[in-house]
Amino acid sequence: MPKQSPVADDLDRPFWDACNAERLVIQHCNACGRFQHPPQPVCDSCGSAAQLVWREVSGRGTIYSYGVVYDTPISALQGDQPYNVAVIELADAPGINMMSHLPGTPVDEVPIGAPVTLIFEVTPGNGQKVPEWRVAR
């Protein structure tokens, strides 16, 4: 499903570069042992910048909840309405969630709590790859 292409900035370029290499990395604070996402200049918890590193995660997760969008202002998505938008909780990055269109899952047949696996999709605007998830079979 075509989406807007994310434009990387200085702060989150490592995240998007990793996506282009089909790896999912999340900011991790080595000082307090905590993941955070979206990327921030410092740790949300302890304020450390020096201890922030990028840590690769598997991308495995579960579906926390979802909605079905019928009326979006985002032009790139309007041709695919209605579409699922699920919230994915990552298994090996506690507290971190991301959003997914759940390709392959029929509209409004989203199994809350089901496990999902990570894939990557190319977006048409600038070719940036983005993380996506499919319900695990």
């Binding site: 985002i74 938008v85 959003m99």
Partner: peptide
């Protein structure tokens, strides 16, 4: 736009309403 910058790239650009 075909691209998205700022915090919306992680959330609102994937949903909309």
């Amino acid at each position: 736009l075909p691209t998205v910058a700022g915090p919306g790239k992680y959330g609102s650009s994937l949903a909309g309403p």
